[in-house]
Write a protein that binds this DNA or RNA. Structure first.
Lengths: 145, 145
DNA sequence: GGATAGATAGAAGTGATTTCTATCTATCAT
DNA sequence: ATGATAGATAGAAATCACTTCTATCTATCC
C-alpha cells in the first residue's frame, strides 16, 4: 500500500491527510503484523516526536473505519490493529499468526448454503458473521513456537 | 440443562457446587439470552441477597471455562455470557440475535477443504478460528426490529 | 497568505474488570 | 452428624484500557 493510496483513501472519507495518519498506516502495512495502540504509539514516537495516546486510539479507529486497517482480537480480549490488504468491498476475513501477529487476508469461509441451512433450522434471519482464523505462519512454525 | 447436570459438570471440573454458581447457570439457561455480568448480578440479587460483582465476573468466567456458558461479543466490545446448549466436545458456533440477545447453537461453517486451501496459499498452519453468527430471531423479525 | 474546519496534546475522567484480604461455606474424613 | 480445610465470597480499593475535555495547532480551501 503506497502512501499515495493511503492519502487517497483518507481524502475519499473526508479525513485530512496528516503525518500521524500516514505514519500509522505505513507502520502497519510495512510490518504486516497486528499491534496494540500502545505498541503503535511507542514505535511511532521516535519519528514523530510527540504522539498522544488518545490520538493513537482515534487514528487507529478511523483507519479501521476506512477499511485500511482491521481489528484483531485475542482470547484475552486485547485489541490490536493490522493492515488490511483485501480488495476494497470484497468480503473477506483475516488469518492471524498466534506466534508473531502476522495477518493475512483469506476469503470468506461461510457458504450461502450453510447460511440458508441455519435460517431454516433456527427461524433466524442471518445478517452477518464475525470470523477470525488463527494459525502459525511458516516462520513461526520453523522457529518451533 | 437440569441443576443436576450443572452440578455434575462443576464437580467434574473440580469446582464446588455453590448456590451462586447454580443460580447463574440456571438464569442463563432459562432465559436463553446473552447477559452482561452486571445484568446477571442485578437479576440474581433479589433471590441471592448479596452478590459481589467480582464474584459474578469470576463465576461467569469459570462457567464459560467448563463449557456450560459461552462468551458473546458485540461490535462495541461489550462482553456478555449465554448458556451453551451444544453437545459437549462437539465443535460448534453460536448464532446471536442482535435484537434480543437470544443465542442458538449452530454447526461449524468452516469446511476442511477451505482450511487446506488457506494453508496451501498462505503457508500458515491453521490451528483454530473464532466465529460468531449474527441475525434476527423470528420474534424480533415479527416485531420489526 | 489568511480563514476555518478538523486534528492533536495532555490532563483528567470513566467504567469495566481485577486484586486484596478477611470472612464464610461446600466438601471430605471422621 | 461434626470438625478441618480448601475453596468461595463480599466489599473496598486498585488497575488498566479507553474516552472526554479544552486549548492549541495545521491541512485544506480560497
Amino acid at each position: 500500500m503506497s502512501p499515495e493510496s493511503v492519502a487517497e483513501t483518507l481524502r475519499n472519507q473526508g479525513l485530512k491527510v496528516t503525518p500521524r495518519r500516514l505514519a500509522a498506516a505505513r507502520l502497519l502495512f510495512e510490518s504486516g503484523r497486528a499491534m496494540t495502540p500502545e505498541e503503535v504509539r511507542e514505535r511511532l514516537r521516535p519519528a514523530l516526536g510527540r504522539l498522544g495516546l488518545p490520538t493513537t486510539y482515534r487514528i487507529l479507529d478511523e483507519l479501521a473505519g476506512t477499511g485500511l486497517l482491521t481489528r484483531v482480537e485475542r482470547d484475552d480480549r486485547v485489541l490490536s490493529y493490522a493492515a488490511c490488504r483485501a480488495e476494497p468491498g470484497r468480503h473477506h476475513h483475516h488469518l492471524v499468526c498466534t506466534g508473531c501477529g502476522r495477518v493475512e487476508v483469506v476469503g470468506c469461509a461461510f457458504p450461502a448454503s450453510q447460511r440458508r441451512d441455519i435460517e431454516r433450522r433456527t427461524g433466524f434471519r442471518v445478517t452477518g458473521h464475525r470470523m477470525q482464523v488463527e494459525g502459525l505462519c511458516g516462520d513461526c512454525r520453523r522457529r518451533g513456537r
